[in-house]
Design a protein around this nucleic acid. Structure first.
Lengths: 123, 123, 123, 123
DNA sequence: GTGGTCTAGACCACT
DNA sequence: GTGGTCTAGACCACA
């Protein structure tokens, strides 16, 4: 987890994204305790309230749970739930917009495929 | 042009997008006068300062010009210029990010092609 | 709106209750602007963030909407929605608990009726 | 005695309620030994300090007594004392608040009676 | 140790 | 004017 921020998105939102990615790729296993608010706060030099705000978004999304006096814990099924939600959003919302823009800008499907293949190999 | 706003983008930005789209699809032909600030302001019930802000972004982008006492006019070459700029941004920035997300979410290129074809036929 | 707090409930929660009551009894009519965050903040001598937290709870409950740069507005249907929600919660959750406790403590239904009638007259 | 906690009340408070209910319904007879702190701690997987805190509340309420080296014992008269206290609190504090809410939400006394009867039969 | 709340004051983008 | 974000530091309840 780096601590390099860009400022077109609020810090807590960027943190939400990082945390979600960590859940997605399994860095935070289900049932496991998340790093404490103050730990992140110290490690990344951001206010604990800012961290808390990020955690609350995960809480609202049903990805983590709070145990009083103990901390935040990854809920079982969180990884799958997150993956499903992101995939659905991507396919139902982002992809159609992408295609729409392709039509508007006269970008051919071949160009997309080309970039897709390039990036596959590069990574 | 509807007047339904969402909240995740500033109104003036949403207006910029609408105006650019209108130039892109030829609704505002080159050399033609743009609707007056107060016309848009009234029609969409938004503050004239907000409209003005949107127009200034188009001015800065070199898509329109101001003729004193007459109003704003679409510059010649605006459509093509806009098309080129958007296409470049799309290919160099947006597409790679989307492809990256596709990889992360295990979305196949076939799904993109499928949606592409569906949307082609539908429109 | 008074500004006398008890401390068994966080200030922002107490504020939520006050605001909901104001919507319930029609003090804030639908479509009308809510008092600004800073206005309440000043009037009640509480931090604006605390007020904001309360407003966000109303936002999440779908009772008010935010208009960028303009403020918070009571949504149409808010009063009815709130009334329905509270009544449902009362009947499905609170009442059964009440009855359950009555049984446990051997409190007769007659006593409840008596208090009900007294309070009706008193108010 | 289950071990499923909710988050809107501290665990030790929830435990206090459970223990009181057990005294109320006679599960813990007067003069009888209460389960040891470590027994409850183990059975419910909660910290022994938390259990201790709950027991201290019962001690302060004069419902149990500590016999050095032997454990906690239900005081004689505990059941009746508890019943009286809870009944008084219920009638003087809880009922008026509920009735007040009934008026605000336009819930009729007939609905209460209906639910009362249903619950009587059901249990 | 955990998270929750609050303050006072700053700065920002938007209308 | 509107709300949003962030900080630094304080205090609290809970386990």
């Amino acid at each position: 987890m780096n601590n390099h921020w860009h400022d077109d998105l609020p810090i807590y939102k960027q943190l939400v994204i990082k945390l979600k990615n960590a859940v997605l790729d399994g860095s935070f296993a289900e049932g496991q305790a998340m790093p404490s608010v103050r730990a992140i706060s110290a490690e990344m030099s951001i206010n604990h309230i800012t961290v808390s705000k990020a955690y609350h978004e995960l809480l609202d999304n049903g990805l983590i749970e709070k145990k009083r006096g103990l901390g935040m814990f990854v809920l079982s099924g969180a990884q799958e739930k997150l993956l499903a939600a992101e995939r659905q959003f991507f396919i139902e919302k982002e992809l159609p917009m992408l295609v729409n823009k392709m039509n508007q800008l006269d970008v051919s499907i071949e160009q997309v495929i080309k970039i897709f293949k390039e990036q596959r190999e590069g990574s």
